[in-house]
């Protein structure tokens, strides 16, 4: 479903962010992407989301290949790959429901379907009761749930999460993580970047891809 083959990424000023990274993530799989700050975790996720292209090697996401992808195909690719950020990136002036509706609207969902789908998405992340609250009225964990509901609006087969629990206390972090596990059991592949070593150690059953200074230092599945 996702495969990186010999991927290197160099930035003009900061040099090599990634060097010769290769791995595959199968349909419905769950993996942690770990490593110290600056190891290249975010860069890997951005490459899979086609926000940037590799300097060498190639990234393949379902039928899209970084060498051949056309610019106008990228929106379709991104609808299959949901993205969740550490800082949520919710629109502050909109309610929880409106934040989710925004995503549905901009991808061209028919107007009459939006309300129903927003309600279903918010229920799925356990936030049906808070649909009229603005982000400022929600806890960190609740905000991240809204962001996940928004990422699910396009019914993606893959969910990429960049330090989704980084801003959350342990309880809320555990809750968001359980949400990811639940979505994964329903069939969505999840790749979650985190530098919380304790958290990763507590889940030894989950595959772990460990980056070090731009290289893939360890893959627990290999």
């Amino acid at each position: 479903m996702i495969s990186l083959r010999g991927v290197s990424k160099a930035y003009p000023r900061s040099g090599d962010a990634l060097r010769g990274v290769s791995f595959r993530l199968r349909k419905g799989e769950f993996a942690f992407l770990t490593g110290p700050s600056g190891a290249g975790k975010s860069t890997v996720l951005e490459l899979i989301h086609f926000q940037t292209r590799p300097t060498e090697g190639e990234v393949q996401v379902s039928r899209y290949n970084s060498r051949r992808v056309r610019r106008r195909d990228i929106p379709a690719l991104r609808r299959r790959v949901g993205f969740v950020f550490q800082d949520f990136k919710l629109l502050e002036r909109l309610t929880a429901a409106e934040n989710v509706a925004f995503a549905l609207e901009v991808i061209g969902t028919p107007r009459r379907e939006i309300a129903g789908r927003v309600q279903r998405l918010l229920s799925q992340v356990g936030l049906a009761a808070r649909h009229r609250s603005r982000p400022s009225e929600l806890s960190g964990g609740e905000r991240q749930r809204v962001a996940v509901a928004r990422a699910l609006a396009t019914e993606p087969r893959i969910l990429l999460a960049d330090e989704p629990t980084g801003n959350l206390d342990p309880d809320a972090a555990g809750g968001v993580f359980e949400l990811f596990r639940m979505l994964n059991r329903l069939g969505t592949a999840v790749l979650m970047a985190t530098h919380d070593a304790d958290f990763v150690r507590r889940h030894p059953d989950i595959r772990r891809l460990e980056l070090e200074d731009g290289r893939l230092a360890r893959d627990s599945a290999a």
Binding site: A76, F83, F102
Partner: peptide, 17 residues
Amino acid sequence: GEEIEIMQIVGAREGYI
């Protein structure tokens, strides 16, 4: 900027944006 970024992330078409 924020809205545009979100539109791009969730897969809105360029023309729409």
